[in-house]
Nucleic acid binder design. Sequence first.
DNA 1: AAAGAAATGTCAGCTTTGTTGACACAATTC
DNA 2: GAATTGTGTCAACAAAGCTGACATTTCTTT
Lengths: 160, 160
Amino acid sequence: MAGQLRDNSQYMTDVTRKEEDTIDFEIIELLFFAYRDFTGDPDAILEKSGFGRAHHRVVHFVNREPGMTVADLLDTLKITKQSLARVLKQLIDSGYIRQVTGPEDRRQRMLYTTKEGQALARALAEPQSRRIADALAKTGPGAREIVKRFLVNMKNSAAD
Amino acid sequence: MAGQLRDNSQYMTDVTRKEEDTIDFEIIELLFFAYRDFTGDPDAILEKSGFGRAHHRVVHFVNREPGMTVADLLDTLKITKQSLARVLKQLIDSGYIRQVTGPEDRRQRMLYTTKEGQALARALAEPQSRRIADALAKTGPGAREIVKRFLVNMKNSAAD
DNA sequence: AAAGAAATGTCAGCTTTGTTGACACAATTC
DNA sequence: GAATTGTGTCAACAAAGCTGACATTTCTTT
């Protein structure tokens, strides 16, 4: 029962019972547990390479959108450039990401994964992808489309 | 287009295309964006009370399972007791959570939210719950059951 | 051409939230 | 009585976020 919640209905006060009617605690918690375990998947690999979850996100998105600029990345991750600079520099120095001066706008730095970066991104994504595939298979046919639409609806719309 | 990804198919190398076949990058990213924006909802309230997301999680789970012990909470959150001690102490000192010596095992500390704690937990959960309800409504009838099963399947099973 | 704005990099310092290791104390169990 | 368990606490450290300030290069606007 580690990491789960017990049935606690016998403890419920009237206030709690009323909240239960209007607030979707169940999905809120399931999201927490699902995401916690989902992000835990790549930890073993990250530890070996000496990187953290911040590095994971950077390698992932640069690998997914080759040629994206620093500004693009900041916008995707929603962190400050000082925060990004730290992990990005480490990834460049370690040879997982390289920068190319923008061909039109020479102020920009287009980001690309190296061969090593691609391998790392793939290795990190693999256990997560397997977890998703297993979960979708267990949930039943048609689950992927529903889940995908739900997740799209959960995130903020384009005009952030 | 802030925080989103462009169509980058024209940049794809053969390696990337092969990965696309076997790795579910799409759901991986949607989970990231959905969870990022979902956890951003309570930020305004947290800033006002001077608490962080760690406090949020503690108040939430204690409110959901009144009488849970410190060990239960550690098991749920999967953090160390030293890390928990910091935020728990602040929540107790601020009057949002109170401790009661265990009736059977007097070493245990049963945790309860105060009236203020319940109000805080509810206020924090409200925008998240609204986001979920809206997303489910847009996704269509029957979405809740599918999403719920998917999330249950995504988390690690009971024997962590 | 000069002035301004934009994209990026960097320095310095701070905060939150996680970690390890060590130790203390009271209460329970063997 | 000894060992174990549940909890608290001290100290130090690490990851990853933040703000503010300032420099450089390059583009855009006037």
